[in-house]
Design a protein around this nucleic acid. Sequence first.
DNA 1: GAAAAGGTGCTTTTT
DNA 2: GCACCTTTTC
Length: 750
Amino acid sequence: MSIPADSLTHPLLDGLNPQQREAVVHHGSPLLIVAGAGSGKTRVLTHRIAYLLAERDVRPQEILAITFTNKAAKEMKERVDKLIGPRSAAMWVMTFHSACVRILRREAARLGFPSGFSIYDQADSQRLMAMVCREMDLDPKRYPPRSFSAQVSNFKNELVDYETAADRASTHMERTLAEAYKNYQRRLTEAGAMDFDDLIMLTVTLLQIFPDVAEHYRRRWRHVMVDEYQDTNHAQYTLIRELVGTPELRTADGDLVREGSSGIAPAELCVVGDADQSIYAFRGATIRNILEFERDYPDARTILLEQNYRSTQTILSAANAVISRNESRKPKNLWSDQGAGPKIVGYVADDEHDEAMFVAQEVDKLADDEGVVPGQVAVFYRTNAASRVFEETFIRTGLPYKVVGGVRFYERKEVRDLLAYLRVLANPNDVVSLRRILNVPKRGIGDRAEAMVEAFAARERVPFAEGLRRAGEAPGMATRSVNAIKEFVALLDELTLKAESMSPSELAQEVLVSTGYRAELAGSGDPQDESRLENLDEMVSVASEFEEANPEGTLVEFLEQVSLVADADQIPVGDGGQGVVTLMTLHTAKGLEFPVVFLTGMEDGVFPHMRSMGEPKELEEERRLAYVGITRAERRLYVSRAAVRSSWGSPSFNPASRFVAEIPSDLVDWRSDPKKNAWTAATRREPSRTAPAGRKGGRQIPSLKPGDRVTHDQYGLGTVVSCDGDKAKVDFGSGGEKTLVLAYAPLEKL
DNA sequence: GAAAAGGTGCTTTTT
DNA sequence: GCACCTTTTC
């Protein structure tokens, strides 16, 4: 744009700063918006969409906007509608996974999948991998299915197929992994299922092998936007490239370096992100996507949003000080014009109960002194397990609260059981779901019978479902088992018949009745079963709501929504009322903001987590997590820690978190007893930069006996096998068995 | 085949 | 300390 951005006037640009305006009206070259925390990046994206529709004659169906969560997508659509009237219906504003499923359902046949394929989440994938490992006769201790499942997920995020994985394998472990990957993939195909990583990877494959498909979507979407770009993985990055298309590339002499994408000029791409808020590297996100955007798209334009509209200068200064300790980072200079505000309050508690009590009392005090209502307060912690003490304390003191995250609705056993029935009815080949419900509720088909059917099916080279139908032919099967299986098959057939004429909610209800699941729970006196029953009713009403929203909706579509749209609505919104205190992990807190924030468990070993302290890269991610936590606060920030914390049953004395030490001390008002401070001063020595906690100064030589559990700086957790005077033999599991000299080994008894 | 006892291992997580 | 998986026992 040649017009200075601050001279632009348009109702949609009102209230935006010059950088934001420029980002909204920019067109042509790919655009990278580097936005600090609280700088209104989502607002820019929303206004940009509205501006495209209102001023640049873009049709809604030409827009594809990718968000990180469904909730963000929903909000973005609503805001666009609010700005320029209802246009969002034809617009694709959704997550990567939703977009891919919609493309794949249409094109599934080209990849050899039925369009009604099942979608496997992480738990399903792990179950399938467990079946594969058992089939391969792998020792679950040496080759844990969970770890294999995670590693296969990594491969897929990197777009590495099993053949490539096999080619690259050099160790026995890697070859076994590649073999398991191959078998896993075969069984997924047999089950007519895709896992979450497949949804992305197979869409990329689809676009790469079928140029006509790629061109179709490139013609459709002329504007592609991605929010939270720092959290994209390699597969998602490639997907965006394929969808946008690449221009022809020539050297200065005019020699062709790379051909352009077929048929059509690349779409306009606009991505938004903050490398400092990348906290998902552990599941494959790579910051490189955002750091090297300009290299990936040479004519890209970058706009920095540095003004923060959320927090006070005190909070921002603290955040800046902490994040600046990270190396390999492009400096940003976040500023706020909201004034210094109150100081950060620090508190050193005796133990975790005292810490929770402090939070509860402080919330009360804030209510009295400043009229803060519980709904304005959030308590963050590093791990889900930490929520318990707060819950107990808040219940005791009568402070209303809500825990966000933890065990989610769709992860509950009974809900998954019901969904498994529906999935089998929608896709009879779905072997993971089928085996899940085989003996649920108990109907006398045990592990033995299941294993026999599996072996029989494998020998006859037929799917498990067919093996089940022909169970009578399986050698050595007890008559009782055969009869039980026959009954089960008959039940499924009956339900399949009914499924044709029933809506999803009716079918769910029917499953609960005819399987006896409802009767079993209702008949039990266990109060837990009562709440299970409630959850199942809730599930039925979820199906009813789906039908209301989609009168033509099929069972497959319902199941798809359930898999893709997890219950993200549980995050309480600021209703004018009192609200409740929000408890959540730091990860869940991303993207949210609260007037008052408590960062708890600020201890080396807790946060940063023990397992991240050895690896500088992981430590940097923890620091970004701290940055995310600090920048959630609008007015008041509390940092607290416990001098003693009982973890896993035994007490541990953790030194102060290095992140707290990184906050300039003049910003913090320590609010602990002086005598407690004196006690803690000894432990608050600056922790060494590289070594984990507990190794400073007078470390004691641990006295060990066989069976003791220990942790080693390099090898991690281990078990003492034998002791010999000043030496000990320790088994570190996958790390092998090591003989260590106790006086020197960086070993700690647990 | 199912209940009870025993053992183990233990970030973060959306889709 | 607890949840989850495996082994043992009935």
